[in-house]
């Protein structure tokens, strides 16, 4: 029996971004970008579910984010998570990894006992790979990053294969610990149709607030009660509920500041055109030989 917690993140799809989606303070205007489930976090959830399939236990997914982050929590439920938590508060906005790991570590403490904490190695919006290790530090847990495979598990230890530069290593880690997994470590399972039917109506507190906005006939508290009865309420933890230090949250608790943002500009284009003919190539190769470019 293993109690697993999985940290997941909703991220802007960074495939196509230009300066036009940046706000003046240098942070990203996320509302302008399509939001997706960070792929390595989905792999982390798959790892946790595999541990549960093999050894029994529970899987709890948590995310810190705005209201719409409940999308990925529903996806966690579709894949097989037993419970999910949305950690959300306006005061969390603008958090760097230090502030984020503070909030997440406090939220994890609140969700109860655990044996394993999983996360993706990094999220595609920042690519920092910092939240995992920083959460581990704050929970006083050992960390095993860059995990490729869990080779075996006993009641007390796990044997893990992890990537290192230039190769790999096998480590033996004692529970509890935190691990971050690589993208190719597992193939996330598809949604279970049965679970989609069961949980597609699951709503967080913020989702319910949105429903009641501008509708005088609906009350959030009543709705919340109804959703709790139906087991469709996604528990939502705010700064006050977690009794957090406001100075360590959001932009206030973030030591890293964006000083300047430059859009990448294409190079000058002062290249010499070479004709794709024998003569053209001869001239080019003569020049390169004269410049000692071939070594």
């Amino acid at each position: 029996m293993f109690r697993s917690i999985v940290m997941v993140k909703q991220v802007p799809d960074t495939a196509n971004i230009s300066g036009s989606v940046m706000k003046e303070d240098g942070t990203v205007n996320r509302s302008k970008l399509p939001a997706i489930f960070n792929n390595e976090d989905r792999v982390a959830l798959e790892f946790a579910l595999q541990v549960k399939d093999k050894f029994g236990g529970t899987v709890t997914a948590i995310t810190m984010g705005p209201q719409r982050a409940s999308d990925i929590l529903r996806e966690c439920l579709y894949m097989g998570a037993d419970s999910v938590y949305l950690i959300s508060d306006r005061k969390f906005a603008g958090a760097d990894t230090l502030a984020t790991s503070y909030v997440l570590s406090e939220a994890i403490k609140k969700t109860g006992e655990y044996d394993l904490v999983f996360a993706g190695r990094q999220a595609i919006d920042g690519d920092t790979a910092q939240v995992g290790p920083q959460t581990a530090e704050k929970l006083n847990l050992p960390q095993v990053t860059y995990v490729e495979e869990i080779l075996e598990m006993t009641d007390t230890h796990a044997k893990i294969r992890r990537k290192i530069d230039g190769g790999y290593e096998i480590v033996k880690a004692k529970f509890p610990f935190l691990l971050t997994v690589l993208k190719d470590a597992a193939e996330p399972r598809p949604f279970s149709a049965k679970r989609v039917m069961a949980y597609k109506g699951a709503k967080s507190l913020m989702d319910l607030e949105k429903l009641t906005e501008g509708n005088s006939l609906l009350y959030t508290d009543t709705l919340r009660h109804e959703y709790e009865e139906k087991n469709l309420f996604i528990p939502t933890l705010t700064m006050d509920e977690l009794k957090l230090d406001a100075d360590r949250c959001g932009i206030k608790g973030s030591p890293t500041k964006v000083h300047k943002v430059d859009s990448v500009i294409l190079g000058g284009g002062n290249h010499i055109m070479v004709e794709p003919t024998r003569e053209g190539l001869e001239k080019l190769i003569d020049q390169l030989l004269a410049d000692h470019i071939f070594g």
């Binding site: 760097d96 230090l98 790979a129 910092q130 530090e137 530069d165």
Partner: peptide, 23 residues
């Protein structure tokens, strides 16, 4: 910004409450 650097630097930054920029 290697496997080792990206493993240890965030942990040390968290403990020492230092700002850290990756990569």
């Amino acid at each position: 910004a290697t496997v080792i650097g990206r493993d240890i630097a965030p942990r040390v930054a968290s403990f020492t409450k230092s700002g850290l920029t990756a990569d």
